[in-house]
Amino acid sequence: MTDVLTQPRPIRLKGRSFLALALTPELPVQDWLVRLDDLAARSAGFFLRRPVVLDVDGLDIDRQELRDLVSELSNRNVRVMGIEGARTSQLGPDMPPAMTDGRPAADFEAPATDDTAVSKKAKSADPVEAGVVEPVAVPATVTPSLVVSRPVRSGQSIFFPEGDVTIIGSVASGAEVVAGGSIHVYGPLRGRAMAGTTGNASARIFCRKLEAELIAIDGFYKTADDMEDALRGKPAQIWLEGEKITAATLG
């Protein structure tokens, strides 16, 4: 029996970002590993279930040394998911993949300074207790937004996975707006608009004049060809109903 594709449904392509812990080894590697061991001793399980990226930018080591370093880390239960800043010649098929375009985030809090580590050791030798993660105050959820107060020109790309994007002006043909939240365009939308890219199905797209080349919400997309002609050139909003992109005129 053969499978018949009755309804061609596009494959969903979603963007997702994870916060990885970036380790920056220093030379000599042996000394650095000693310091890492010290950190791990103070906080057992610090590296557990945390994606770790090895940042070797500017580090003068060859392929074999890098491979040794990765296996040393793996012996310490530190699983490296990717290597940043390595030359192609330093990497091999048996090594973690190269990663690029990392964006800096706030530093991870290293578990306890030396002094407290000593006092903690004095108090209790139990590594589990030392490894208890301090509860972090969760801030009230604020949705960040980005306001662009000039036209987005052809070839330009506005990328804001953190939240909503508002554009005061037009989005030209060949321009692209990618938002984690909703997209508001106070002008003609002629380029591409992708809302809710981080898995937000309730995101919407609003524009003064709908002439978009492509619109997408949470991975579901529609090209200009698939859009209703009646909406062309009209003020419109676009949202997701189940798995269907729905649009209606505004005002």
Binding site: R153, S154, G155
Partner: peptide, 12 residues
């Protein structure tokens, strides 16, 4: 027109 728009973006 589209190429000009691209150029205006570069000028900015």
């Amino acid at each position: 027109v589209r190429d000009s728009d691209r150029i205006i973006g570069l000028l900015d």
